[in-house]
Amino acid sequence: MTEFLQTLKNLRSVYERAAANERASNPTSADQRAQTARELLAVEEELIRLKGLTSALPPDLGNISDLPEELRAELSIAKTDELEDQIVTVINAYGGTASLDQILVGLFRRFKVVQKRRFLQNKLYRMTMVWSVDGRKGVYTTTEPPEGTAETGKATVKEDEWDFEPSPNDETEVPF
Results as ranks from 00 to 15, higher is better:
Asn122Cys: 02
Leu75Met: 12
Ala19Lys: 02
Val130Gln: 04
Lys79Phe: 10
Leu53Trp: 14
Leu107Asn: 01
Leu71Pro: 00
Glu16Phe: 04
Ala56Asp: 06
Asp134Met: 03
Gln35Trp: 08
Trp131Leu: 01
Asp81His: 07
Val130Gly: 03
Ala42Thr: 14
Asp81Leu: 01
Val90Arg: 02
Lys116Ser: 14
Leu41Cys: 07
Phe111Arg: 04
Glu45Pro: 00
Val90Gly: 02
Asp31Gln: 04
Thr141Pro: 09
Leu41Gly: 11
Val133Leu: 01
Phe119Glu: 03
Asp60His: 10
Tyr15Ser: 11
Thr143Leu: 15
Asp60Asn: 08
Thr36Leu: 14
Gly138Val: 02
Val139Thr: 05
Leu57Gly: 02
Glu69Thr: 08
Met127Lys: 01
Leu100Met: 13
Asp85Gly: 15
Phe108Pro: 00
Asp81Trp: 06
Leu5Met: 08
Leu100Lys: 07
Glu82Gln: 15
Glu16Met: 08
Gln35Ala: 13
Ser99Tyr: 05
Asn63Cys: 14
Arg33Pro: 00
Asp101Leu: 09
Asp101Glu: 03
Ile48Trp: 04
Leu47Tyr: 15
Ala18Gly: 14
Tyr125Ala: 07
Ser65Met: 10
Ala24Phe: 11
Thr128Cys: 00
Arg17Val: 15
Ala78His: 07
Gln121Trp: 01
Arg126Tyr: 07
Arg12Asn: 13
Ala93Leu: 04
Glu44Lys: 00
Thr28Gln: 14
Leu5Gly: 12
Leu124Thr: 09
Leu47Val: 11
Ala37Phe: 03
Asp66Asn: 05
Thr28Tyr: 08
Ser29Ile: 11
Ser76Phe: 04
Leu83Arg: 06
Glu82Ala: 08
Asn21Ile: 09
Val14Trp: 12
Lys137Pro: 00
Ala73Lys: 13
Thr36Lys: 05
Thr80His: 08
Glu3Asn: 12
Leu11Met: 03
Glu16His: 07
Ala78Leu: 14
Leu107Phe: 00
Lys137Leu: 08
Val90Phe: 11
Ile103Asn: 03
Arg126Gly: 06
Tyr15Ile: 00
Asp134His: 09
Val14Met: 08
Ile87Phe: 05
Thr80Lys: 14
Asp85Tyr: 03
Leu53Asn: 12
Asp85Ile: 00
Ile87Met: 10
Ile64Val: 14
Arg12Val: 10
Gly96Asn: 13
Thr89Glu: 13
Arg110Gly: 08
Gln6Gly: 07
Glu69Ala: 12
Leu83Thr: 02
Glu84Tyr: 00
Pro59Thr: 15
Tyr125Met: 09
Arg49Pro: 07
Gln86Cys: 13
Ala34His: 12
Asp134Ala: 11
Asp60Val: 08
Leu5Lys: 03
Ser55Thr: 05
Ala37Arg: 05
Leu53Val: 06
Gln102Leu: 09
Pro27His: 10
Asn92Ile: 07
Asp101Gly: 01
Val105Lys: 07
Leu41Met: 07
Thr142Val: 15
Thr28Lys: 13
Ser132Met: 11
Leu104Ser: 10
Val14Asn: 07
Thr28Met: 13
Tyr94Met: 13
Leu41Thr: 10
